[in-house]
Design a protein around this nucleic acid. Structure first.
Length: 138
RNA sequence: CCAGUCGGCCGGACGGCCGCGGGCGCAAGCUGGAAACGGCGCGUUCGAGGAAAGUCCGGGCUCCACGCGGAUACGGCGGCGGGUAACGCCCGCCGAGAGCAAUCUUAGGGAUAGCGCCACAGAGAACAGACCGCCCGCCGUCGCCCCUUCGGGGGCUUUGGCGAGGUAAGGGUGAAACGGUGGGGUAAGAGCCCACCGCGCCGACCGUAAGGAAGGCGGCACGGCAAGCCCCGUCGGGAGCAAGACCGAAUAGGGAUGCGAUGGCCCCGCAAAGGGUACGGCCCAUCCGUGGGAGCGCAUCCGGGUAGGUCGCGAGAACCAUGCGGCGACGCAUGGUCCAGAGGAAUGGUCGUCACCGCGCAAGCGGAACAGAACCCGGCUUACAGGCCGACUGGUAUU
RNA sequence: GCCGCGGUAGCUCAGUGGUAGAGCGCACCCUUGGUAAGGGUGAGGUCGAGAGUUCAAUCCUCUCCCGUGGCA
C-alpha cells in the first residue's frame, strides 16, 4: 500500500457499463460503484452525472467536486486493480464540502470491505460473467 | 426632487496553499525504446458567455447532384432609400395607430385579374333588403263643422282593412347595413339641395423614392378577409463537421498467384463400351474410362471495410486605440494585440481581505442571478441577482 | 452536435376558422334474490403556454415549454 497508486481514468462507455455490474454503495450525496478488473494494476476511476442532476453547469460542477474528492481520498481508500465509478446525485453540486468528503470516504471503505469479504460470491452474482457461466442458485 | 422614456456598459476584485486542460521550452533526474522520440517531472504562458442557450434566419467550409442560362413546381420574403459577404438583421425616412410629451408599436405590395368565405342574430350580408314605423290612394268607421233641391256632398279628426303605392329619416340585429352633423326642402322622406367634415378623382409644387401637398373637380360611387387559394415583384439546387479526408487491428468474408490433395457429387472436352444411322469412323454421351475446370486445404499478396486513431480545428467578414467621412447603421486610414480549443469533456477545493445586498444597536450571520464553447462567423429570440453611465419628456420648487 | 415528429376528457385517439367529439373508464338509476353482462341518465376540458392576424382561433402565423425518434 505504500507504493504510489496510479490513477487511471475510465473513458469508454463499455468500461462504465462493466463497473455497473459490481458492488455499489449509496450515500446521500454520492453513489459509488466498484468492480475488480481482470488484470491488476492501477486504480480506475470514472465520473458521471445524469441530466437529473441539473443543467450542464450543475453537472460539470458535480463532476469537479467528485473528481477533487477522489483525488484526495482514493489513494488511501481505493484498491489497486479495482475500477470505481462515482455517480453524482441531485445534492452533489450544493452539498457542504465536508459532508461530501465524508460520504465518499465512507462509501470507499465500505466497498473495500464488500469486495474483500464478499468477493467469492457477492460480486459474481451481479458480475457480467454470469451470462457465460451457468447461472448460480440465488 | 418626483414620475417616466430611450440608448450604452458591467456581470465581483486581489492574494495564500493544494489541484486541472492546451501551447512552448528543458541542463540534470526516473522510466519505455536499437534509435528517432515519448511518459513522469520542471519552467513558462494561455484557459468559457452576454447570452456559450434555443437552433429561428443568413453566410463561410465540406460532400453530393447538375453543361451554362432559363422555365415549371415548391418554399421564404414584401412601404421607400441605405448599410452589409449575406439576411427574414440593422440604420434613416414615409404611411397607419397609441401617448399630454419624450417616445413606442406596426408581416405595411395587389380585393376594378379571378375563385372562395363572411356563422349566429337580423326585414335585409355583397349584382343587398322592407319587419315595425312614416306618408299617399281606395273602402269603411267614432266625433265635430259647413253646404243642401233633404237624396246627399265637402272639410277636419279618431280608428280599421286593402294596395305587384311612395320612403329609407327613425326603431331593432350585427364585427360590418350603399357617408356624418346642422339647415333647407317634402305628402312623408331621401345628397333631393346647401354649409362644414369625411370619401373618390385630378393635381401646381416639394422629395432619389415611399410619399407629402396648395388648389380644383365629383353629390358619393367602389364592404372585409390575401398569417384562404391566388396575382405581382424578389430570393432560394440538396445535405450537413455525426460534413468530409486519411491511417487501420482482431474475426469473418471477397479477389489474385503458387503449391498440395483429389474418393464421390457439379461443369466442359475426348470417345472405348453402348446406342442411332441417311452407312460417311457420320451422329449421341446416362454409368464406367480419360484430360481439364470448379470445389477443398495451405502459403503469400491485394482491395473494401468494422473497432479504434489522425486530420478537419482556428490569424479571423478578429479585437483594441486614435483620426477622418456619414444624421445613422457603417466605412476608410494608421498603429497595436494574438485571444479557449477538450473528447466521460479542462476553471475545482479551502482560507483571508475588500466591495455589493438582507437581518441586527453591535460583534456577527446569511446571500450573491441566468447559465458551460464543441467547425467558425453575422443576426434574431428566450433566461437573468445586482449595479454604472449618458440623453430626453412631463410635473414641482428656486432663480 | 445536427435533423425530424408529436402535445385535445382519467386513458387511447377523431376533428374542423363560428357547436369541442367518439370508444374505454367513472358516478347514479333500471334489470337480478345478489353480481357480471345489458339498457338509460349524467359529470368530467386554460384543446401544452404566450403574443399576433381575423368580427371570431383548438384550427392560420410567430415565440417559448414539454415529450419522442433518427444520424458516426
Amino acid at each position: 500500500m505504500n507504493t504510489p497508486p496510479i490513477l487511471r481514468r475510465l473513458t469508454k462507455r463499455a468500461q462504465f457499463l462493466a463497473v455497473r455490474q459490481g458492488a455499489r454503495a449509496v450515500r446521500s450525496h454520492v453513489l459509488i460503484e466498484a468492480r475488480r478488473r481482470e488484470e491488476a494494476g492501477a486504480i480506475g476511476v470514472g465520473f458521471t452525472a445524469s441530466k437529473k442532476v441539473g443543467g450542464a453547469v450543475a453537472r460539470n460542477r458535480a463532476k469537479r467536486r467528485l473528481r477533487e474528492a477522489a483525488r484526495q481520498l482514493l489513494p488511501q481508500h481505493g484498491q489497486a486493480g479495482v475500477d470505481y465509478v462515482l455517480v453524482a446525485r441531485q445534492s452533489t453540486p450544493e452539498a457542504p464540502w465536508a459532508a461530501l468528503l465524508d460520504d465518499v470516504g465512507n462509501a470507499l471503505i465500505r466497498l473495500r470491505a464488500d469486495l474483500e469479504t464478499g468477493r467469492p460470491h457477492a460480486p459474481k452474482k451481479r458480475a457480467s460473467s454470469a451470462p457465460k457461466t451457468p447461472t448460480e442458485s440465488d
